[in-house]
Nucleic acid binder design. Structure first.
Lengths: 314, 314
DNA sequence: CATCAGCACAAGCGAATCTTTTCGATGCTA
DNA sequence: TAGCATCGAAAAGATTCGCTTGTGCTGATG
């Protein structure tokens, strides 16, 4: 590995032409410069100077290296100055992973809100289950947006991870527009829903948890002949009259054409959190992104609340 | 000034994420890595890590610097490998300065001959008088092509400079094609030339030396009403019938349309040398260029000799 | 609550590097 | 031509740098 200070000596020598002059320019003794250049030759594995008793001149290799040295040193200086300027500004890539529904719902607002931060580069990926948390924990990702069906009061997280509460997201009933239940004057009664054909996520999926819990209160389970993955797929099937489904309200942010949703009594709900390493919260880029995430979540929450209220008002 | 090894540590840390892991990867102890990164923060003047008792994470500035570090290190490696490959090959810029006539005469052949040396970049400038030697002496230029009217036997130079004899270049008489002297059956008699209108270089110019010395042998001086600078200019004036002139044979290499030249009896001559620092002769690039220069000079010399012989043969 | 893991700090030691000194060689000048 | 000055290299000593070892602290984990 070449040494930067020696490259600087070489560059200076290339300009001055004598060891004594180089030494004076750099504030060293001539002997030090001579030794430094010898050491550089050792490191480079090539002869860099033709030395005579009274003069020293660069070899072709020395000249070549001097040219490179100049570029390298310029690059280092550039890095230093950039660093000096950009300290405290939010910049660099921030990686966010979210479960698909949240990604769909939050991405536009997030992008909007972060647009004014010039140097910040947002990378949004999707992940399911606990993978997101693991990725944040291992510093593979910076922020994970996860859902939690436990219905515990929001906590701020323990250990090296912090949780920020973003959304409270209850299950809603999705029915086709031409379905009897689409009539909002008719109340939704849980025990009668058991007779309907149900579409649900496969067992083991996080979003399946809500559906199962919903019917646990009435001591039964719906006939889930069709199990499909993906809220979008499920809603599409509902709109086409294949069956009905219970989906998190957040899923409605993707579009609700051809279907009607109803508020479910005693509906289980999930909480959506942003998970982040406590140590990374100091980073301006992370800080800015988290603020944007909270802002986006607040807007989504407000939209959902209004939609649910107006759905039952009629 | 940032230190390369520390930048390497930073880069490694950016990939691994922990000090202990970085230490293991680099074969150091964790303590060493910690100290190196602290030192790097001191050098950079910015906080690069957020340190807690049990973890350390890069700040935005640290990430930024890590990106730069990667580029810089790649550049250094590239320089090393280029250096390892190109050792012993002629490359780099070689700067040659020549007096104008020589530049015109030698440039095409020189370029031709150096074409096959890929990495070699030739820079040819013009200079007059002793400026070329001074520039070579101060390493401002690598090679100077100079003329010497002293008519001493060729010497190889003294001190740190070496002289390589390139050409022996006698004065010839240049007359318009329709001039009585253009008749080659009529011998050139020096004392009769004094009656002709002469064009010469200004006093003090090196090429004026020859003209003056020519007439010193017959104890007179021509009527030099017109003094012009530049052999090309002078030859042009001769071709238009303004007068006659004595020019070094080398000047004929630039083209002889409209004029005839005659060999002068007892003509003074100049010798053309390449001047180079003894210390730089070991450089392959210089060596190659000098060979090319000698080759070009030999060709020019041969051309001149033949032209002079055939001029008087008729 | 005990253990473990990760990091920082202090001390010590070895290596690197700078200075001083001396010498040889060369160029310049009187 | 002789002496002086300049330049670079080598040897020796002093200082600084950097790595290791050992210790302590804090927070996560079971």
């Amino acid at each position: 590995m070449l040494d930067l200070r020696r490259l600087q000596v070489l560059k200076e020598f290339a300009e001055r032409g004598t060891i004594a002059g180089t030494a004076e320019a750099l504030g060293y003794t001539a002997s030090a410069v001579s030794q430094q250049l010898s050491a550089l030759e050792r490191e480079a594995g090539t002869q860099l100077l033709d030395r005579t008793a009274r003069s020293a001149e660069l070899t072709d290799g020395g000249r070549l290296l001097a040219v490179h040295a100049e570029q390298i040193l310029a690059m280092v200086e550039a890095a230093e100055s950039v660093l000096a300027q950009q300290s405290g500004v939010a910049l660099g890539p921030v990686t966010v992973t979210a479960f698909p529904t949240a990604a769909v719902a939050l991405a536009p607002l997030l992008a909007q809100s972060l647009r004014r931060h010039e140097g910040l580069q947002l990378v949004l990926r999707q992940s399911v289950g606990a993978a997101g948390v693991r990725q944040v924990s291992s510093a593979e990702m910076d922020i994970a947006v996860i859902d939690d069906w436990s219905e515990r009061p929001p906590d701020t997280g323990t250990g090296k991870l912090r949780h920020l509460h973003l959304l409270h997201d209850p299950l809603v009933l999705a029915v086709p527009s031409d379905h009897p239940l689409a009539d909002t004057r008719r109340p939704v009664e849980l025990h009668r829903l058991l007779e309907e054909p149900w579409i649900a996520a496969p067992r083991g999926e996080p979003s399946r948890t809500g559906t199962d819990r919903l019917f646990a209160t009435v001591g039964g389970a719906p006939d889930t002949a069709w199990e499909f993955q993906g809220q979008g797929t499920i809603l599409n099937l509902v709109a086409r009259g294949i069956g009905i489904a219970a989906v998190p309200a957040l899923a409605l942010a993707g579009g609700t054409s051809g279907l009607v949703f109803r508020v479910l009594p005693q509906a289980p709900a999930r909480d959506v959190y942003a998970v982040v390493r406590a140590s990374s919260m100091r980073r301006p880029a992370i800080d800015v992104t988290l603020r944007a995430l909270r802002l986006a979540a607040a807007e989504v929450q407000q939209t959902l609340d209004e939609a649910l209220r107006s759905a039952e008002r009629t």
